[in-house]
Write a protein that binds this DNA or RNA. Structure first.
Lengths: 220, 220
DNA sequence: GACCGCCTCCCCCGCGCGGGGGAGGCCCGG
DNA sequence: CCGGGCCTCCCCCGCGCGGGGGAGGCGGTC
């Protein structure tokens, strides 16, 4: 049973982006879109999503009011993931007080977005953005907040996948990685594919970018 | 302040010879030795040489790969003087493409060696006459030293190439870059090829790594 | 015992990528 | 004026990459 997601954002571009990211996952389905908070309640009743990805700033009814209205009027309401552009958006905290389950930065990478939605759907509250540093902290050391750690449980690359990603981030080809790890190239291809899937990357270049951006590997 | 030189050659005899020649000069100091390219990067970080005298043919990691790795991973990298036995070594061309600053024949006289190191340290590209012709031919022009030097000038990306590299570093495919820049994909391929050549990268992934390692783009 | 995650390897297949050429238009400086 | 750098676009071509399957062994847990 897939995670059913409803997208609420006044920017079509953002909705399209979220849809693309989420529907790339086999276990996720976008069941509806709304351009404003005012349209949310009937849509929720109609589509019964597990998670509502809710923008904070919207023209008619903002994400805070929409969250309040939703929780007040709908029985067995969906989880609410607040989506925001700014890290220190005061509205976000207000939304959380209004009953939202977590928040997410728009500039988060696909893998983080996916993880956030998945976490929220499973009832974890996600009060910290699935930010890049926490991903980094996971591999350096386990010291992070619980929500982030839970997210990383799912995001976690296996040991072998981590090795492969590190070598990818050093510019090695599949054949070179195979030689280095003393395995077959087909094996490396399997690991690479797994890494790409888990990171939400289309190709190795994007995976390496994610590795840098997440602090998984560091420049210099 | 003396010119600090790091020697990288798998033959101890050659290292000893270079050391003897260079340390006979009052303004030169050999700050380290390595027997293989694989050992270069940590040694460079540790000793901060001005010039690396790099053999081309070495057991584990050859001079070409070592040069690439060095330029890719070390900030403010040293100048690289490729040392070779053969005048028409195809590897030399590769090494220069990889970003080496010049090359030197092992049978050169002591005075020439000293001269070469000094020139390299001062930022001059150095190509011995016999091979300049060959290189000029390789670059498809009889313009002599000037053309070869210009072609070998590292990381001198044109404005357009810089734009392309930035987009590559954001994970865009050639087609996506073409759409973004409103040009044809063939044009993008031309720029990408130019970027790869100038950075000594084998593929776009290595180019992006270089972009990160050099600070051309920054994480976060 | 059965199950499951991980690692390993295999198949086929399409396509994007990168190398090798070349060429025309533009502007600038000698 | 002509040359050179830059940007643009074109050709052909080989191959690595990534997606789609599947499968066996191995060490865990239930």
């Amino acid at each position: 049973m897939p995670v059913r997601v409803l997208l609420v954002d006044d920017e079509p571009l953002v909705r399209a982006g979220l849809r693309a990211v989420l529907e790339a996952q086999p276990d996720m389905a976008v069941v509806g879109e709304a351009a404003d908070g005012a349209a949310v309640i009937p849509l929720v009743r109609q589509t019964r999503p597990d998670v509502v990805a809710m923008d904070v700033r919207m023209p008619l009814l903002d994400g805070i009011e929409a969250t309040r209205a939703l929780l007040r009027t709908v029985t067995d309401p969906p989880k609410i993931l607040v989506v925001t552009t700014f890290e220190n958006d005061e509205y976000v905290y207000e939304a959380l007080r209004a009953g939202a389950d977590g928040f997410l930065l728009k500039r988060a990478r696909p893998a983080e977005i996916v993880h956030a939605v998945r976490l929220i759907a499973e009832g974890e509250s996600l009060l910290f953005p699935a930010s890049v540093r926490q991903l980094a902290a996971e591999y350096g050391d386990g010291g992070g907040n619980r929500a982030a750690r839970a997210a990383l449980e799912r995001a976690r690359l296996t040991e072998r996948e981590g090795e492969v990603l590190r070598l990818m981030a050093r510019g090695l080809s599949n054949a070179e990685i195979a030689a280095r790890l003393v395995v077959g190239t087909e094996t490396v291809k399997s690991h690479v594919s797994a890494v790409l899937a888990k990171l939400g990357a289309r190709d190795r270049t994007q995976a390496v970018i994610t590795a840098y951006e997440s602090g998984f590997v560091a420049p210099g």
